[in-house]
Design a protein around this nucleic acid. Structure first.
Lengths: 226, 226
DNA sequence: GTCTATAGTTCGATAGAC
DNA sequence: GTCTATCGAACTATAGAC
């Protein structure tokens, strides 16, 4: 039952195990890298089918339309990433956790980074989708951001206020948006940092970047919390 | 001589006066809003023609291909914005100027903001293009970023080091990239800040946002300059 | 569930009248 | 310079055999 499974995926947004190698999953994997490299409109069903090693017709059997495929792909991986984010954040509030601004910011980005690295086919593909999705004014992407990312955003905004009581709610929302903006430069993997620095900076190395990003964001947040 | 004019536009990247109302300019104006709302692949020549109030064939007479049109549009406005940026930055180094980190960051963003606001047809359209262009891994946009935005980026990176000698070149490049990332959240106009804050934040108000962004970025830069 | 073949649509670009 | 009309290619989606 292909299409039903795809719709469940999109409806629940839960952490469906990202396992290989049914053709169904191969299509979703291929979607990630093709959509990431070409955008929604630039991507073609033919290219996705080719990359997945299946007939084009099979994609329509499983997902019916390109739109459904796109949302199913976002749902599968964002469910996984955001569950991890929520789990890390909740852990910081537990008695054995250490609720600091630094830990919050790290919890915000690490799941995305690790999801990108652990991808077998194309490291960072989904991160690039996440980036353009979260920051697009396109209606489709606005809808998906609202559905899959706004709820977890609210949890992080509340956490920022918890560790920095000086933050008004307004400033906390700005701070969260700015943090996401900074994170984009890490996740987009444009190669621009390397180009601008004659190779000193490497936006392919997520751990090194986290070492720069976390202090940058934390200082910025505190500047808004006076 | 339409196409020649378009190619000169793309080749020089100079501040061509943004004047209306030849059909040539009407096409460029329409391109901005259509490309901004739909992306390169999502935009259609038909929609641009309709928005410009001209026949579709006329676009091809002036610009030959969609690719040339896109670059001509980027060239026209980025030339204008980046000339202004360079002028503001150079002014800070003059005897009568005040070279501070805050002033540098403000000079970085204000021309883009004002270009967005002063647009008659669709405020912020070009800012959205700039955002996706500068942060895309797409080959076309990578090329345009390199051609139109990397030179001015180097000037700003040098300025950051000038005011914050503690910055290594590597950290200065990261700081610049992060600053651009933060600026995106301001320029993309997704409406997300308003949604997340129940209307407290308004990403349509550029001046209010600058008041939040400048302290955030300056604190972040200084955190990397120890 | 998976494939091949193709229908139906839309798009970028061109031709040619004015 | 500007328009109308249309070509040829590429795309999404469907039909039907296996």
């Amino acid at each position: 039952m292909g299409l039903r499974r795809a719709k469940e995926l999109a409806a629940t947004a839960k952490a469906v195990p990202i396992a290989r190698e049914s053709r169904f999953d191969a299509i979703l994997d291929a979607s990630e890298s093709v959509f990431a490299n070409s955008g929604y409109d630039g991507a073609t069903m033919r290219e996705i089918a080719e990359r997945a090693g299946v007939a084009q017709g099979l994609i329509h059997y499983h997902f019916k339309t390109k739109d459904v495929l796109f949302e199913a792909m976002v749902a599968r991986r964002s469910g996984h990433i955001n569950d991890k984010r929520a789990e890390l954040l909740d852990g910081l509030f537990q008695p054995q956790g250490t609720l600091t601004l630094e830990n919050i910011v790290e919890a915000l980005f690490r799941p995305t980074i690790e999801a990108g690295i652990s991808q077998a086919n194309d490291g960072g593909a989904f991160a690039r989708i996440l980036v353009t999705t979260a920051n697009s004014s396109d209606d489709r992407q606005k809808f998906l951001t609202k559905k899959y990312y706004d709820p977890i955003a609210q949890k992080y905004i509340a956490a920022l206020i918890a560790v920095e009581p000086g933050l008004t709610r307004e400033n906390a929302v700005w701070a969260y948006m700015f943090a996401i903006g900074v994170g984009m430069t890490m996740m987009a993997k444009t190669g621009r940092p390397g180009r601008l620095s004659d190779g000193l900076c490497d936006d392919g190395n997520a751990d090194e970047m986290l070492l720069k990003i976390v202090p940058f964001i934390c200082a910025g947040v505190r500047a808004l919390a006076n």
